[in-house]
Amino acid sequence: MRALLVRDLKLAFRAGGGFGLGLAFFLIVTVLVPFSVGPQSDLLSTIAPGVLWLGALLACLLSLDRLLALDWEDGTLDLLATAPLPLEAAVSVKALAHWLTTGLPLVLAAPVLGVLLSLPGPGYLWLVVSLALGTPALSVVGTFGAALTVGLKRGGLLLSLLVLPLYVPTLIFGAEVARRGAAGMELATPLLMLAGITLGTAALLPFASAAVLRVNLR
């Protein structure tokens, strides 16, 4: 498993690996929002938690179509399926590698971009906490979507259509934690729901991903 994780991280950092793509997209989206909304800092600070969450979600989506498609194209998936490593473990590791190269940088960059949207003071901590708790679910659900569409030529658009509705619960509770945090309100309930969704998807979806992958490899 470590070998697969190390390889995926190495591939992400090498030329054409796509590391930083999601981060740059996140940066651009959040910079564009004040341009389109206008320089009203009251309005901006109200919508900041939601905009940052939406930006992070779309940035996660951006690199999903290469998550399994590249391994399918060059035959690696066939070979991995015949390797001693269970396919469930392989998709879990791939989801983890996706989070480390896409989700984690977004979590770390979010407070800096919060400044651009004049996020209120107490909001920074809870923005980072909610993203750190929520983005792993985005990677795991995205891996499931990638497994569903592997083998389809240019399946990227279909992948987005399949995955975005599944992102809704995470978005609702994640943005709610960030919003309540910024307003200084009680936030235990959405925080627990967010953590529950992440743990539930991480525990169950790898089995579903491996099952659909086996069908798609036939």
Partner: peptide, 29 residues
């Protein structure tokens, strides 16, 4: 669990070196 399969495509990563490619499969197996 006793079969090594080699198909039309070799499962190689173009950005990894020859050693890294082989090392990866050696570790996986």
């Amino acid at each position: 669990e006793r079969v090594a399969y080699a198909a039309h495509s070799d499962g190689l990563k173009p950005t990894l070196t020859v050693t890294e490619n082989l090392q990866f499969w050696a570790r996986i197996f």
